[in-house]
């Protein structure tokens, strides 16, 4: 009689296993059908860099090269130039005339974002990056700069002299 018992045990085991299979078959899949569906990214997701602007349209980047110094992969190149009130790109004396990130070197560590004193360079949400040549992997400032926000003006701007004299936003004394 052990032979029958064995056979019945075997069938039972099979069905136990298949139960898992069938259960999974009918439960909803977790696969997301990319690219038609896209999973929303988390809050601190480190995607493609974005150079931010102030609400009035002036660029936040002041060309200080701290991001370039902090980058462990030597991916960023910055060349600074002087602002004038007739041709103003950012508040203060200095702006980035050339800003390039070599995306093939970048390791998306976010050190540049940490180093930036004006919160100009942030790693955004975009992860859909591809290039067809090494040259096109070097993202320039025009590509990285975010669009002018609502109510702001594009740069360069002609502004009143003496208004935008500080490179770094007004810092308030701590209140607590």
């Amino acid at each position: 009689m052990s032979l029958v018992k064995d056979a019945l045990d075997g069938v039972k085991a099979t069905f136990t296993g298949l139960a898992t299979t069938f259960r999974e078959m009918v439960s909803p899949p977790v696969t997301i059908q990319y690219p038609e569906e896209k999973r929303p990214v988390r809050t601190r997701f480190k995607g493609r860099h974005v150079l931010k602007r102030y609400d009035n349209g002036l660029e936040k980047c002041i060309g200080c090269s701290l991001c370039s110094a902090a980058c462990p992969a030597d991916a960023i190149f910055v060349e600074a130039a002087e602002n004038t009130d007739d041709e103003r790109y950012s508040p203060g004396e200095r702006y980035a005339r050339v800003y390039e990130i070599n995306m093939l070197r970048c390791i998306f560590c976010g050190y540049c974002e940490d180093a930036c004193p004006t919160e100009a360079i942030v790693l955004g949400d975009n992860y859909e990056l591809s290039f067809t040549s090494r040259r096109s992997s070097i993202y320039t400032k025009e590509f990285l700069l975010e669009p002018v926000p609502e109510g702001g003006k594009p740069t360069p701007q002609k502004v009143e002299p003496g208004v935008y004299t500080r490179s770094v936003p007004v810092m308030k004394d701590p209140e607590d």
């Binding site: 090269s65 370039s68 110094a69 060349e79 600074a80 200095r94």
Partner: peptide
Amino acid sequence: RFRARPWE
């Protein structure tokens, strides 16, 4: 002026 950073 503004041409480069000394560490570069």
